[in-house]
Write a protein that binds this DNA or RNA. Sequence first.
RNA 1: UGGGGCGUCGGCAAGUGGAAAGCCACCGGGUUUUGGUCCCGGCAUUCGCAGGUUCGAAUCCUGCCGCCCCAGCCA
Length: 561
Amino acid sequence: MSTNETPAESTDFIRDIIREDLASGKHDGTVTRFPPEPNGYLHIGHSKSICLNFGIAAETGGRCHLRFDDTNPIKEEMEYIESIQTDVRWLGFDWGEDLYYASDYFETLYGWAEELIEAGNAYVDDLSADEIREYRGTLTEPGRPSPYRDREPGENLDLLRRMRAGEFADGERVLRAKIDMASGNINLRDPVIYRIMHVDHPRTGDAWCIYPTYDFAHGQSDAIEHITHSLCTLEFEGHRPLYDWFVEHLSVPSAPRQIEFARLNISSTVLSKRKLLRLVKEGHVDGWDDPRMPTLSGIRRRGVPPEAIRNLIDRVGVAKRDSVVDYALFEHCIRELLNKDAERRMAVLNPLKIVITNYPEGASEELAAVNNPEDPDAGSRMVPFGRELYIERDDFMEDPPKKFFRLAPGREVRLRYAYFITCNEVIKDSDGEIVELRCTYDPATKGGDAPDGRKVKATLHWVSAAHAVEAEVRLYDHLFEVEVPGADGDFVDDLNPNSLEIRSGCKLEPSLGPFVPGEQVQFERLGYFAPDTDSKEGALVFNRIVTLRDTWARIRKQQGR
RNA sequence: UGGGGCGUCGGCAAGUGGAAAGCCACCGGGUUUUGGUCCCGGCAUUCGCAGGUUCGAAUCCUGCCGCCCCAGCCA
């Protein structure tokens, strides 16, 4: 198979800039980086940055580094360093040898701090945090210089060395860059670049008790790694002048360019570590990998293939506008992929027993079922059929409304890959609850076609009662009831109380018994599912990844339920 | 009332002076042994608003309005 068309190049303002830089010879190649702080789990919002950085590197034959921005030991843990690597790999990206840590540069960064002092561009400030805030001024009033602003380089150097040596307590002094206390950009009002923290660092242990801030570490780390384009989110726009200031005033080995883009937001969920942490801590979900969570670990556990996330990111694009992507677009990406890849199976989640009264007692037979109508190579399998079967309760109505085409008293429908059946009798218990249906089948319709050409308006899925495998199936809905949680009030108040529904006693066709964990299946007419990590031998648990598009549900809604 | 950004269909998003791409959602219709898939069609006479420049403006100019970010020794 060949084509003359070149694949449509995804383009956005960042790729445009990079293309120009390459064309003009400003750079020979590209080096990007994904720089998470190891203080939490990655979520789908991060995948935009990951796909962008690794994607651009791949498209331009460059490299993308994975760098942990571990400058604040209070919040960081090795556990996160592990999980982040697992998640990035799962998403489908590889940093090769290029794994770095900002903490690897602590000594170099410290040297640059002394360099700044010697040039009269930094000073040790004895003001307290509160005083610094007061002196900083406000959004509309300029700041005032600290009384320590004009200390001599010699004294500053001595003080910084003593800070490093551990002579002072946390918060007693800080090192500040001497820039402009009257700047309209508050980030330039002598930002703190080193603080004292007598805290062990996950990687450097007790080697340091002073740590550089993000502003003093990030651009310089980029420069050390010869990053050409440092892509970050919009909230860092105001930090760019500072980023550039350090690159200009320090003897760094290269001059990276920071470019900002809008972060990914998705409706009906939240994407901030703070909020996600609260969901876990307050027990609204069962952990970071709860299948309802937008964390990569949660999405993975739910059964979503990583390719679906990459496709979503491609479709969303990259721009500078604050936006909220419709969750439906994500669902579409999942369905689009799984429709093509997932094998079909039959499973009944809410069983209603039917007895085929004219089918011989004790008999059974095997019927051929297609594995994936979208993929002829997927072949077919045999499914057992017998006198007693289960169908979905929703597929029968004693008193059907207009447009309900499924089973009803006196009505004939098709059992997929099996026979036409007609419902003759409805059996109820003493409460009036339907407990069983008595039907007859037409032996001439074996396989699902009537030789006389008669049609039927519905095809139902089913499972033979004698052969069924039992399983628990977990159904998920949006975590939040509103598109933008917390738009008015606490986001927790917008939680969807019905985001999880557990169905036990579900009946699966026997081929699902030994199903391989990690693989996705379509339960015909119901949606895409995957085994949960809670599955055990003989105690299967499936997660619903996403439903199928459901036109009948829409009709029902239009009819007023 | 400081500085930095952003405003194109319900949601994303192209377009950068010469006839408003595409995708999702939604609404029809066809095919169908999944009310799935697939196919066909519809969906911005108008680009936050108001002026101006121009033969011609979403694109240029001016003014206004709205939204987001910044006052951590977080990132």
